[in-house]
Design a protein around this nucleic acid. Structure first.
Lengths: 167, 167
DNA sequence: ATCATTGCAAAAGATTTGCAAGGTC
DNA sequence: GACCTTGCAAATCTTTTGCAATGAT
């Protein structure tokens, strides 16, 4: 459950797979087919996803490369422990995204299309440190989600509104 | 599910109970004993809580003023709709706090004692607006949780550490 | 009298866990 | 060969929902 931030800036040279192998070894865990499949799939492209989306996209029961539901959940948690993925809650379920080798950022969440948009703010980090200092709080991380309606949805809503106005 | 922000600055004169009555009337809902009990209990003191904590604290089955589990959940959601409570997720479950008549703020979450500490930052609001403007995003709210270890836990950890050092 | 609300139990949704069979070191 | 891992099903946890009985207006 706890993330390992310490290695992040040091060992960016390792690929996610190499990093994971290292993690597994250090814990006496084994490098299995299933773990490799999931890691490979997840790091193929940068996107946000939850366990269910992943299970839908991966090969189904009977197909080649199939992973049991429990294995997907277990492996996702290992990837978080390994510092490869970051996990956070949206509307009650867990959402994952790349952590390893990916710059720190926060999110805007569109309540119409459910999309997550990323942004980075140095100011926010400063603000976080200032607040923590004030309260003698030792920071390990933070999560900021701005909710609202994204540009695209704003536009299509305006279109709809205009149409309605004509009726 | 949607909060009514519009009334907040206008009708601060109403007590939570009056505000809730107004809300119920406006929706053709009824002012029942159970709703009054819960609202009264929840607004007795300012604190963070989840449904389970509340159910534990309220009168048990057979006792006077007992509320069924489902009623507690249903009523909490109504209080959120009425703009009296604010709801957010921590570690997968819903946490509630006062919204009505209570100033906007954010949280630090201590990962040792689970406590939620509040702070306010005008800068954060400005930052939020700036980011949104950059992305043409229409903001309805935000949630920032800084995680780490609070002052108290830092102190007791130092105590423990010192003790261990002596052994 | 009408129609919303309650409590219960069952359902639902997300995630975890026990266990026997199989895979990795 | 030892022991970790997998897939399955069952269990858990939190929250929601259907329904008959009860209560508010």
């Amino acid at each position: 459950m706890t993330k390992d931030f310490s290695l992040r800036s040091v060992e960016v040279s390792l690929s996610p797979m190499e990093r994971f192998e290292e993690f597994l070894q250090s814990r006496g865990k084994r490098n299995t087919e299933q773990r490799r499949i999931l890691l490979d799939y997840v790091f193929r492209r940068h996107s946000h996803f939850d366990a269910d989306m992943l299970i839908d996209q991966l090969p189904g029961k009977g197909e080649d490369g199939y992973l049991g539901r429990a294995t997907v959940y277990r492996t996702l948690n290992e990837l978080v422990d390994a510092g490869l993925l970051r996990k956070f809650d949206i509307d009650g379920r867990s959402v994952f995204e790349h952590d390893y080798g990916y710059p720190e950022h926060d999110h805007m969440h569109c309540q119409e299309c459910e999309r997550l948009l990323e942004f980075h703010s140095d100011e926010l980090i400063k603000l976080r440190e200032a607040v923590a200092r004030d309260h003698n709080f030792r920071v390990t991380g933070h999560r900021l989600i701005i909710s609202g309606v994204c540009d695209e949805c704003n536009k299509s809503r305006r279109r709809k509104k205009r149409k309605q106005d004509l009726i």
